[in-house]
Simulated scan of single mutants.
Amino acid sequence: MRPLILAGGGGHCLSVLDTVHRIGYYDEIIILDVAERVGGTVSKYTIWGTEASLPELYGKGCRDIMISVGSTASTAVRRAIAEKIERCGFSFVNLFDPSAVISAEATLGKGIFIGKNAVVNAGAVIGDMAIINSGAIVEHNNFIGEYSHVSVGSVLCGDVEVGPDCLIGANATVLPGVHIGKNSIIGAGSLIYRDVPSGSKIYGGNR
C-alpha cells in the first residue's frame, strides 16, 4: 500500500485529488480536516480525521503528505498546518498534474502543487508549499516564494519575482522583471506594470 495524506478537505482538495488519480501512484488516500467535517465526504473519500490524528497515522507507517488547503487572502492556515506536520516527521511530497509542462531546468522545493496545463519554464524557482494552479504560466527565471499561490490562468512573464505568502489572482498578468513583495495580494485580472511593495493589495493594476 502507498498511502497519501491530504491535509484539508475543501475545494482545492478536489483539484489535488484529481491530479493524484491522474498520476496513479498512490493507492490509499487519507483526508484530514476540521472536527466538524470528519465523516463527511470529498469526492468518493470519507474525511478520516483531524490534525490530531497525525501521530497515529505516522505510527501506522504513513509518511507522504500534501497540504490540500488552498489560499486566498492569507497563507496563515497553510503555514500553521505545515508546522504541525513537520513536528510529526512526515515528508511533504510534490504533486504535478501530468498535463503540466515543467522545465528540467526549473528548481522546485517541497510540498508544491502544480495543476492542469500549468507551465513552469526554464530557470524558474518555485518555493516550498507553493501552488501553481491550473493553466498558470510561470515564465523563465521567475522566483516564486514559499507558500505563494499563482492562481488559475495567471501569466508571470520572464524574470518576475514573487515574495513569500503572496496571492496572484486568477488571470492576472505580471510584466517582465517586476518584483512583488511578500504578503501581497494581486487581484483577479490585474495587470502589473511595476514593482509592488510588501503587504500591498492591488486590484485592477498599477500602471
Rank of each mutant, 00 (worst) to 15 (best):
A35W: 02
V69D: 08
V34M: 10
V155D: 10
I29M: 12
G205W: 08
T75N: 14
A76G: 13
Y203E: 10
V125H: 03
V138D: 05
I186L: 14
G123P: 06
E51S: 12
G49D: 07
S190I: 06
R37C: 02
Y26C: 11
N121K: 07
G111P: 04
R22G: 01
F90N: 06
K182D: 05
V119Q: 01
L54V: 09
I65C: 07
S103L: 11
A73T: 08
N121I: 02
V162H: 11
T46V: 12
G127Y: 03
T75F: 08
T46E: 07
G205M: 11
R2E: 15
H149E: 01
P176M: 14
I47C: 01
P176W: 04
L57D: 15
A124L: 08
R87W: 09
K44C: 02
D97S: 01
S68C: 01
E139S: 10
S154K: 00
V155T: 14
V16S: 11
A7L: 02
L4C: 00
L175H: 11
N206S: 03
I185P: 02
I168C: 11
I185K: 13
V93G: 09
L167C: 06
G89N: 11
I131M: 02
T107F: 04
D128W: 03
G49K: 10
L167E: 10
R63L: 15
I112E: 01
K60F: 06
K182R: 15
A136W: 01
T19R: 00
I168E: 08
T46Q: 08
S184D: 12
E56P: 06
K110N: 15
G70I: 06
P197T: 08
G8A: 07
E105W: 10
E146Y: 12
V69R: 02
